[in-house]
Each structure stands twice: as structure tokens, then as C-alpha cells.
Design a binder for these strands. Structure first.
Lengths: 134, 134
DNA sequence: GCGATATACTTGATATATCAATTAATTAAA
DNA sequence: TTTAATTAATTGATATATCAAGTATATCGC
């Protein structure tokens, strides 16, 4: 039997530590994640449910996370042409600028996170995590 | 420059997914983590601040997490002999029983998480995460 | 085409964590 | 040795997520 539990503990702890360490520009790490995914998406927009899936959150969680970002005009909200239930989220120009700044900060803060881990190993770990996330 | 950010996203998402998937016996995954660490500690007890460190939380967070567990007589609270500021947390007999049950459930649920990952790789991954957590 | 199901999203009630401030005790330092 | 700095824990105010329930729209099966 594989010793999975300590592995889960480590993920849990890393998450807690990162959440506290990687905030800046008025954004916490989850906010940053949202901005990043919106920017990377085709046409720069995502349905709220797809955004929820990218973060592993519920639809409800995304509704609540987007609220302050919309209020600050960092993210905007659009109807969908082909599905009246769906709403798109996308970055405003201010949101794009903010994302650039936040990305620079986070890249700086995380630069030395894995001094001895190769790009290959990192990719393998991501694949492993994605396996769980399915 | 290493592509660290997608790795952080994956951790974040796995954490969210696990938190939702691995609850049972009235415990969420963080509760389970607390019980597990208390049981594994020398003499079955830990100072609250050390418990916080194990989970990567703040002292405040631990105070609040322990509250309902103490109320339900799963965890109990003791003074320290040599430091009047510190309080120990430890499992009650009911807490130990509950931990056993919860462990069985979680092991069952996570059994097939890494079908193709060796024990070695898992250990390497844990080491990598611990590096970040320091 | 129409009724049953499923999907996208929001809201109310609640639980979980944070930070900043506070209290109390310990340790360091002058 | 008594003042200053640090540490452990708690609390108030606040932010983040959950689940369950509800609304509106889409889709599936017949």
C-alpha cells in the first residue's frame, strides 16, 4: 500500500503557505489565478463555470470571488451569444495591466522555489496532480 | 526561467479538489490532518503552535479549528508544565477511534490516486513540497 | 413538439482562515 | 535585575468557500 497520506498533507500545507506568501498588488493567489486563466483563454474570456473548473472551485465560489474583482473593474462580465444561462468573465484593460505587474512579482517571489528540480520533473509532477484533479 | 506558475496552479487546484472530496465521519480533511498529527506526535500531544506549523496555518487558525473538535470531545486541551503560555492538544479516546475510522475511509478513497507513480517518485515530490514549506 | 433532466448561475446560511491587536509568560540584554 | 524584545495563544473584524435551494435556460428522449 502506497503512503499517500503524507503526500496529501504536504500538498495541503504548501497550499496554505503559498496562499499566505504569494499575495500582492491587492490580489491574493486565487485572484491572480483567475486573472491568469482569463488572459490565457481563447479570446481572453471564459464562462464562469469553466473558470471554476480551472481552479477546482464550485460555481458558487467563482461568483463570490469575481464580485470584488468586478466591483474594482478588473474583470468584466458579458452575456453569451449562444447560451442565455452562461456569463463570460474577461479582463478589463486595467485588469491586464494589473496581471502583468502581479505576474512579475510572483515570478520574482517564486524564482528560487525549486533550485534543484528540472523542468522535466516539474512537468511530471504537474501531470501527477492533474491526474488527481480529473 | 522555470515554468513554476502552472505548477503552483496545479497544487492550488488539487488542494481545492481534495478538500471537497476527502471529508467524512463529520471531519473535513484539515480536521483529519490535525487528528493524524496529534496521534503521531511523541506522547500523543502537540503544542498548538507546533500543530499550526504542521498544517502551515497561523496560530489563530488552529485556535479556531480546534474549537469544534474540543466541543465534541475529540480533542482535549492541557496546560504545559514548563511553559505557562503554551497549551497542548491531544486526542481523547473518542478522538482515537474516530481517527482510525477516518483513516480507513481516506485510504480507501485515495487508493487509486497514483496508479503509475512509484513510492520513490512520491517521496521525491514530498521533499520538493517540503522545500517550499520551509 | 413536450415533459423530464441536466446545466449555469446566484443567494442564504454557515464554516474556515486571515490579519491586527491584545494578554500573558518567557528569554535576552544592559 | 529590571527593562525590552520575543513567543504562545486568543479574540474582533473581515474575507473566502462550501452546500443546499432556487431561477432560468438548454438538451434529451420519445
Amino acid at each position: 500500500m502506497k503512503n499517500t497520506i503524507p503526500f496529501l498533507f504536504a500538498i495541503n500545507k504548501t497550499n496554505a503557505v503559498l496562499s499566505r506568501r504569494l499575495s500582492g498588488h491587492g490580489l491574493d493567489f486565487s485572484d491572480f489565478t483567475i486573472l491568469y486563466h482569463l488572459n490565457a483563454a481563447p479570446e481572453g474570456k471564459l464562462r464562469r463555470i469553466d473558470l471554476a473548473d480551472k481552479l477546482g472551485l464550485t460555481a458558487s465560489g467563482i461568483t463570490r470571488m469575481l464580485l470584488p474583482l468586478e466591483k474594482l473593474h478588473i474583470v468584466e462580465r458579458d452575456a453569451s451569444d449562444d447560451d442565455a444561462r452562461a456569463r463570460y468573465a474577461s479582463l478589463t484593460p486595467a485588469g491586464k495591466t494589473l496581471l502583468q505587474d502581479a505576474t512579475a512579482t510572483i515570478e520574482m517571489k517564486t524564482e528560487d522555489f525549486f533550485p534543484e528540480t528540472s523542468e522535466d520533473e516539474l512537468a511530471k509532477f504537474i501531470k501527477l496532480l492533474d491526474e488527481i484533479n480529473k
